[in-house]
Amino acid sequence: MRVNFTVNGRPQQADDVWEGESLLYVLRERLGLPGSKNACEQGECGSCTVRLDGVPVCSCLVAAGQAEGREVVTVEGLADHARQRARGAGGTCGTSLDEAKGWTADGTDSQTGEGAELSPVQQAFIDAGAVQCGFCTPGLLVAADEMLERRPNPSDADIREALSGNLCRCTGYEKIMDAVRLAAARQSEGV
């Protein structure tokens, strides 16, 4: 079957989709967007988290056909999404773009993908050491970004609850907590 939907603001079309395919599979294997990760495919790890019409969901549990006509935001579109939110919010997060530039990681090794403009939560994950193998990172970023959108000043218990659907096997979560606290702090400083 054919499926049409919007991903990160761009209309996308996938053909010859098998009816049992998940949104995750279509994103990864048909649309060249492998950022959403395939760790469990049973809704038990959160690494495939995307926004579906604004709401964080496990894309492995969305049938591809269910995405028809919907809007999807993946980790690949997170920086744009945050930028638009900052603009749309009429200056409440005013200078986040400039700030983001100011936070650019030092160290200039290869493999850096330098030049990419990052959302505050992406930058905070790098700065706080919240990334190790990184396989859980895209899903955590989408979930954390959405929480900060709803709840700009979360308590630690709020952060833990909001991220309780995202497994990480490397970090023991401490640096992830640091990263979200950092992103929240920078976000509120930006006001």
Partner: peptide, 22 residues
């Protein structure tokens, strides 16, 4: 405490894991 050289790729979803190969 220098930062990971692969950090940016990993937070943008561009880092190519073995399951991302195509």
């Amino acid at each position: 405490s220098t930062l990971r050289p692969d950090g940016t790729l990993k937070v943008t979803g561009e880092f190519a894991y073995s399951s991302d190969m195509w």
